[in-house]
Each structure stands twice: as structure tokens, then as C-alpha cells.
């Protein structure tokens, strides 16, 4: 599953790091507590959060995340965008509330191996 497939399917607005959209998404992580995300997320995760300040870029970059989705139409702060562009970290914005966004992303990643044979 490539990041651009998720962006297209969920109509996410890409605000930085377009060059990283071809990256493979290996999983996902949800959280607004940065220490939790630092400790428990994994490389290749798509991180879903509503934190918008510039420190999210450092976390995503240190953890080698595929990208960050900001929910509920939360736009990143100007310095967050600057930093994300510099570091090539894709940030996407959706108007969906977290529950909905997470569910849709989960479904896409969980079904990436093809449709469920029982359906």
C-alpha cells in the first residue's frame, strides 16, 4: 500500500512532503502524546494525530514514519509546514474526525493483501 493510494482514496489534502507520497505504508499509529508515539510507533507507520505544532515533524522523521494525517481539518502551524518541507515529511489534512479517518485507513491497510475471500 503506497501513501498516494491512501491520499487518493480518502481525498486527503497534501500540505507538505509530496515527494514522499510514493513511500510504502507498512502500518498505522494513532496518538497525540508524543512520548507514546515515540515509544510505540514503527518505521513505515502512517501517524494519525491532531497535534499540529512543529515537533510532530521531528517525531515522524526520527521514527521514519511514512507520513502524518491531521484530522478534523486541523491545519499545521506555519513553522510545522516549513520544517516538514525541509525534512520531506508528508503531512496530509482531512476534515474527517479521528474515528472515521482511522477506520478508513485501517481498512485500506488491513485489506491490502486483496479482498476478504469470504465476501
Amino acid at each position: 500500500m503506497h501513501l498516494e493510494d491512501i491520499v487518493k482514496a480518502l481525498n486527503l489534502r497534501v500540505v507538505s512532503g509530496e515527494e514522499g507520497l510514493a513511500a510504502e505504508v507498512l502500518g498505522g499509529y494513532v496518538g497525540d502524546l508524543l512520548s507514546d508515539v515515540m515509544a510505540n510507533s514503527k518505521e513505515g507507520d502512517l501517524w494519525i494525530t491532531r497535534q499540529t505544532h512543529q515537533n510532530i515533524v521531528a517525531v515522524a522523521s526520527l521514527k521514519d514514519h511514512a507520513g502524518i494525517i491531521l484530522i478534523q481539518g486541523c491545519n499545521p502551524a506555519a513553522d510545522t509546514m516549513d520544517k516538514a518541507r525541509k525534512e520531506g515529511v508528508p503531512i496530509m489534512v482531512t476534515d474527517m474526525p479521528g474515528f472515521e479517518a482511522i477506520g478508513k485507513v485501517y481498512n485500506m491497510i488491513a485489506t491490502k493483501k486483496g479482498p476478504d475471500p469470504s465476501t
Binding site: L33, L34, S35, A39, T49, N55
Partner: peptide, 11 residues
């Protein structure tokens, strides 16, 4: 800002 959850030193 999502810091100060009392996890840092434990991490």
C-alpha cells in the same frame, strides 16, 4: 503540546 504525560523518563 502532547508532552508531559509522565512517560519520558520511563521511555
Amino acid at each position: 503540546m502532547g508532552f508531559g504525560a509522565g512517560m519520558g523518563l520511563c521511555n
